[in-house]
């Protein structure tokens, strides 16, 4: 390894310079990516990062304000450590966001492919269904599904995921129609390639990528909707350290213990902003139409 570095003394500094140029040109993207990575790390290693268990009650301190001491960010009305609960909460937020987006993108892929490829009445029926799904905001849709499914983390993932199928279906269908009209699809047909192989080899790879970009953007939306469900008390059930739930619990004490709602609220806001900056950056990076010149 040392030989390589020595034999090309210019390579190392120039690569570092490249990285530096990139960072300088994309300051906000890099900051946001680091923030998201920090959340993912905290979520993955919550038991090691958090000073307390999320439901551990400290009988000596209820509604303690943030202070230097055992409870850096204070405690809630049950004497639970807010920092620890917020760190564990990142697990639920990210899990629900990713899970819901996977369901939404997967369902959207199936519906969009079916509509775009089959066409005719199937397409008409599917798109009318999607239109009716899109007529209601996702939160209302999710509320409707939750009222059928019942409460719980898995139910929230499913409800938010299903509510996202509509928008994903629409973009996938649009992309399928656009790709289907490309000369390379006709070229494959002329070569004698069968319909299934054309779909698999030529159409899916060209729609899956914009779908993945859209999915990264929608993770933050899914988290917001799921927090909304918990906030209005029909999502995740207490004492799960879900941010929406924590904000709801802290609501009654806002005037004299604002940190109870403020800490999870800030955690949620920062994650949402960071995720959308990362999502936009990813889209800009891979969508040539949006790429800035120079």
């Amino acid at each position: 390894m040392a030989d390589v570095a020595l034999s090309s003394p210019r390579a190392a500094p120039s690569r570092a310079a490249n990285v530096w140029t990139y960072v300088r040109g994309h300051v906000w993207f890099v900051i946001a990516a680091v923030v998201v990575a920090a959340y993912v790390f905290a979520a993955a290693f919550a038991p090691f990062v958090a000073p307390f268990a999320p439901t551990e009650q400290d009988m000596m301190s209820f509604m303690a304000p943030p202070a230097w001491g055992p409870h850096l960010l204070g405690t809630d009305s049950f004497g639970q450590d807010l920092l620890s609960r917020t760190i564990y909460g990142a697990r639920y937020a990210l899990l629900i966001g990713l899970g819901a987006v996977l369901i939404g993108a997967g369902g959207g892929l199936v519906v969009g492919l079916a509509a775009g490829l089959i066409g005719g009445r199937v397409e008409w029926a599917l798109m009318r269904l999607v239109d009716s799904l899109l007529a209601l905001p996702s939160l209302i849709m999710a509320i409707a599904f939750i009222s059928i499914l019942g409460q719980g983390v898995d139910k929230v993932v499913l409800a938010v995921g299903v509510a996202l199928i509509g928008p994903f279906s629409r973009t996938v269908r649009g992309d399928v129609l656009q790709v289907k009209a490309q000369p390379f699809v006709e070229a494959a047909r002329l070569m004698g390639v069968g319909t299934l192989a054309i779909v698999w080899r030529h159409i899916i790879p060209n729609v899956i990528f914009p779908l993945a970009v859209q999915a990264t953007i929608r993770v933050s939306y899914a988290i917001l909707v799921s927090s909304g469900l918990s906030f209005i008390g029909i999502g995740v059930t207490p004492p799960t350290p879900d941010w929406g739930l924590m904000i709801a619990e802290g609501r009654s004490f806002v005037s004299f213990a604002p940190w109870i709602a403020g800490v999870p609220g800030a955690a949620l806001a920062v994650l949402l902003i960071a995720l959308s900056v990362v999502g936009d950056g990813v889209r800009e990076q891979f969508d040539p139409k949006l790429k800035k010149e120079g």
Partner: peptide, 29 residues
């Protein structure tokens, strides 16, 4: 017919799947 008749498109770029490498494109037939 599919093997014996080959088409060269006006829109050459559009006639080649952008997600396939040149190797796979030329090897596809």
């Amino acid at each position: 017919f599919c093997r014996e008749v080959a088409m060269i498109y006006q829109d050459a770029r559009g006639s080649l799947n952008p997600r396939m490498s040149i190797l796979d494109l030329v090897a596809e037939p």
